[in-house]
Simulated assay, not measured.
Amino acid sequence: MTSTELAHAPGTALVEVEAPPAALQFLTFRIGAEEYGIDILKVQEIRSYEAPTRIAHSPHFVKGVVNLRGVIVPIVDMRIRLGCDAEINAFTVVIVLNVVGRVVGMVVDSVSDVLEMARSAIRPAPEVSSSIDTRFVTGLGNVNDRLLILLDIEAMIASPDFGLMD
């Protein structure tokens, strides 16, 4: 449910304006020791890991493709992309995303939960050298003494670095 506000400039008619939601929801997941969050609205589904079909000459972090109900979905191993160990175990999952009009699978170590965070609880990301480009970090959230790195997954997947979009 969204809220609306009435906006009025002097000399104009009242106009109903959609107010941004006070809180945002994030799917949280782990890669190595770090915990990340992405906008829940970008998530299509979460699947257990199954070995994809490898595609020749694809970047090292693109594991291959899977057939998901008739849709060929590229599988990106975010652990490799971020320079972490990429061991497959019982907790390894694929988060299926719907971003930039495409379906993409993202391999992560595990999925934690869905968190709702107030916009005021999100702080800007500091400019530091790290394995993830700060252009793709929308902010940092502090939830119950856990630091959550919030990603702009749409910008990340659409970036030329990933080589998935035209």
Rank of each mutant, 00 (worst) to 15 (best):
P74K: 02
L14I: 15
A158D: 13
K42N: 14
R79V: 02
G101H: 02
A125K: 03
D166Q: 13
G32I: 03
V71T: 15
I80Q: 15
E116R: 10
I149G: 00
L115P: 13
V137N: 06
V15A: 14
R30V: 01
C84N: 13
P59D: 08
I80N: 14
G83T: 07
D152C: 10
L150W: 01
V73S: 08
G37P: 00
I149S: 03
P59S: 05
P21T: 04
P10S: 10
S129I: 14
D39Q: 10
I95G: 08
E154Y: 07
V99G: 01
V65M: 12
P126I: 03
A22R: 10
T28L: 11
V104G: 02
C84A: 14
D113K: 01
G139F: 01
E87Q: 09
R54D: 10
V114S: 00
N67L: 06
T134S: 14
S48Q: 15
L41F: 12
S3R: 04
D109R: 01
L140A: 02
I38F: 01
S58M: 10
V103N: 12
A158F: 07
T28Y: 07
G64D: 11
Y36E: 14
R135N: 08
I55Q: 04
A90V: 09
A155K: 15
R79E: 00
I46F: 12
I95R: 02
I40F: 03
A7E: 14
V94G: 01
E18Q: 11
N144C: 04
N98T: 08
I132A: 09
L68A: 01
S110L: 07
S129M: 10
F136E: 11
E18P: 06
S3I: 10
L148Q: 11
I55Y: 05
A90S: 13
